[in-house]
Design a protein around this nucleic acid. Structure first.
Lengths: 154, 154
DNA sequence: TTGTTTTATATCGTGCGCGATAAAAATATT
DNA sequence: AATATTTTTATCGCGCACGATATAAAACAA
């Protein structure tokens, strides 16, 4: 058969896409209990580490554009998890900070990583195999996330 | 610091999510030239391997639900890439098949995997490192994609 | 200072993913 | 045969991701 390179089983991209969706789905029940989505959970992770950040700083840490981050934060404002205020030092910026509800949720979320680990074990996933993926993914992400996009298609 | 498990740098999930988005973004310029999206490309990969399949068979191979697959195929019908017809043997099914345009696109797409490989090389990604990910991802996907979802949250 | 460029934010439109729901056809059960 | 269950498809609503576009503020240049 010709075009072997086009077979699904040869696609790294499809594997990453599928693995990403599967693990996000695994988080879903735990996040649903908190009333948040996976992406909102990521924003909370960032803010729990450092409160009061500009919208775009949060986006950059998640490798998301402002066009994703801005409406995302807005939905989280409606949920009462965060709020924002202007920055006098730079009037373009909106500083996002956690509300008491957003801070409280950290304690409710503290067990989620452990729950996920347990669930993966239960599904038969060996943790040491998953740990092997981490440096490979980090290498890939670091190399692929350089800002300059190719402008030539060869 | 408490809650160390909640730090972004400890999250496998975030890495998979980011890596998936980055590689999909890398495909984008090549797919844009063909006028299709990444998910539509996946459907074409499936149909190029085996034409004339029920909607859900395509979805199952991509681990996508019928609620994703059905409108996806519909958009591809509008683009003139596929068409569908009822199955007399099972009147519930809609068999999806490639139009001449959809078949032709296989030749146009044949070079995409090679382009991606080149681009990753150019970005400094070592292919042998990426190959190491494949069995790990396959193991993860196979274990995590069992249909029965947990109904208990511990 | 004035003009240009860059940066930070926001909005709009489109295409996913997926939970929820519905309807029709096939299959299994009684 | 009649009923119940499962399977296949479809639709709706919502929240992303992201390209394109717009605006205001800051930084830079002439």
């Amino acid at each position: 058969m010709a075009y072997e390179q086009l077979e699904l089983r040869h696609q790294l991209c499809f594997r990453l896409y599928t693995a990403s969706r599967l693990i996000t789905q695994a988080y879903e029940p735990y996040l649903k209990a908190l009333g948040i989505t996976y992406t909102q959970y990521l924003v909370l992770l960032v803010l729990w580490e450092k409160d009061n950040q500009p919208v775009n700083d949060i986006g950059k840490k998640l490798l998301l554009g402002i066009n994703t981050t801005s409406p995302l934060i807005k939905r989280m404002e409606v949920l009462g998890l965060v709020a924002r205020h202007g920055n006098d030092a730079d009037k373009r910026q909106q500083l996002v900070y956690l509300t008491p509800k957003g801070k409280q949720m950290k304690e409710d979320a503290a067990n989620i990583p452990n729950c996920l680990a347990k669930q993966m074990l239960k599904s038969g996933v060996a943790p040491e195999e998953m740990f092997k993926m981490i440096p490979l993914l980090d290498e890939f992400i670091s190399k692929m996330s350089t800002k300059e996009k190719q402008d030539t298609i060869e």
